[in-house]
Nucleic acid binder design. Structure first.
Length: 234
DNA sequence: GCGACAG
DNA sequence: ATCTTGTCGC
């Protein structure tokens, strides 16, 4: 169920590993058969466990099916270094995913997909590791250049580019809010990634599944919650 | 050498 | 990521 997630001993070997895994990334794939997505987010404070939440979301019914929470003690955490986020957060995400009652069809991850200096943001890393389609949804830019001005209207998007190639999209989920940075992680096309995000409800800047994951991770950290939860059906 | 830098 | 009061607006 859960294979090894290698933790490099330094940033040199970490970069090497990223380049190797980036070569396995597949940037094609559509949404056929994608019914349930798992949204992942984490919450942490210095000196405390890092808490991750996985929210299983039903695309057709537009609702949370279940939530799982996992944590990793501070001693076992890779430090946060820009460009190496997956080594810090992915192990806890894998634990949260393993605690779900079923395997999702696609991962929605808070962070970059292939819009990364070495082509392996956390969404791409998780996608390749689990061999699952994945999409990165970041709240700020790490790598790449927006191709032009982003219109103020909700739903607008402009390509996110680097070295004359498109890596993802700068996307406006709501009018007059800061944009999101989308990039496929694995087994998903650029257009399909945008299509998926546009199909998700977005009452706020973040698409609802990710907003729920954010809320659960924060609440779980503050209240010490762990395990699996099944929200009441309306 | 300098600036940038997901969460 | 987290900390943190008030404030503006529906």
């Amino acid at each position: 169920m859960s294979a090894l997630f290698p933790t490099p001993r330094d940033l040199k070997s970490a970069s090497q590993l990223q380049r190797e895994l980036a070569a396995r990334v597949l940037l094609t794939g559509d949404l056929t058969g994608v019914r349930k997505v798992a949204a992942l987010d984490a919450s942490s404070r210095r000196g405390e466990p890092l808490v991750a939440a996985a929210v299983l979301w039903d695309l057709a019914e537009e609702r949370v099916l279940e939530v799982s929470v996992a944590a990793t003690p501070p001693e076992g955490l890779f430090p946060y270094v820009p460009g190496f986020l997956s080594f810090r957060e992915a192990p806890t995400y894998l634990a949260a995913l393993a605690a779900l009652s079923e395997v999702p069809d696609l991962l929605l991850v808070d962070g970059q997909g292939v819009a990364h200096p070495r082509g392996l943001g956390i969404a791409a890393h998780l996608g390749v590791h689990l061999d699952l389609p994945s999409l990165g949804v970041a709240k700020s830019l790490l790598y790449g250049v927006p191709a032009g001005e982003l219109p103020e209207e909700a739903g607008s998007a402009v390509p996110l580019t680097a070295r004359s190639a498109q890596l993802g999209w700068v996307y406006r989920s709501r009018a007059r809010v800061k944009p999101l940075y989308l990039s496929p992680g694995h087994r998903l096309g650029l257009r399909e990634g945008l299509e998926l995000i546009r199909a998700l409800p977005a009452p706020t800047k973040l698409p609802e599944p990710l907003r729920q994951a954010h809320l659960w991770a924060g609440r779980a950290r503050r209240e010490g919650l762990r395990g699996r939860f099944t929200p009441q059906r309306p």
